[in-house]
Amino acid sequence: MSAAYIARATDVAARALGGEMMIMSAKDSTLFTLNPVATIIWQSADGNTPVAAIVREKICAEFDVDPMVATRDAESFVNDLASHGLLIVSNEPIGRTKPAQGGAR
């Protein structure tokens, strides 16, 4: 999994509000509130950056967290969102670049 690439699905609405990122499946209206680590993963899900690189270069660089724990948590989060159709997971770059949605206002 940590070598996998992830991209945000298209049928997703996202919005940063009061320091929290919320994302919602436009298909079934499932709503998630992301913690700061999950927000970084979400915003980095550009289809071209492997999960392992996101964990190593962004999460471990910003938070005082054990890399093994960070990897495990990231994989759990990705699996959760992927199961709701909010993230696309692939063993190869997904090739669809899109600016991060839901910038703070």
């Binding site: 919005r15 009061g18 298909k27 709503l31």
Partner: peptide, 16 residues
């Protein structure tokens, strides 16, 4: 989905 996204955006804006 497009309208659901709009409703979500509006709800967020209202809360803001």
């Amino acid at each position: 989905p497009e309208l659901v996204r709009m409703v979500f955006e509006t709800a967020c804006e209202l809360v803001r």
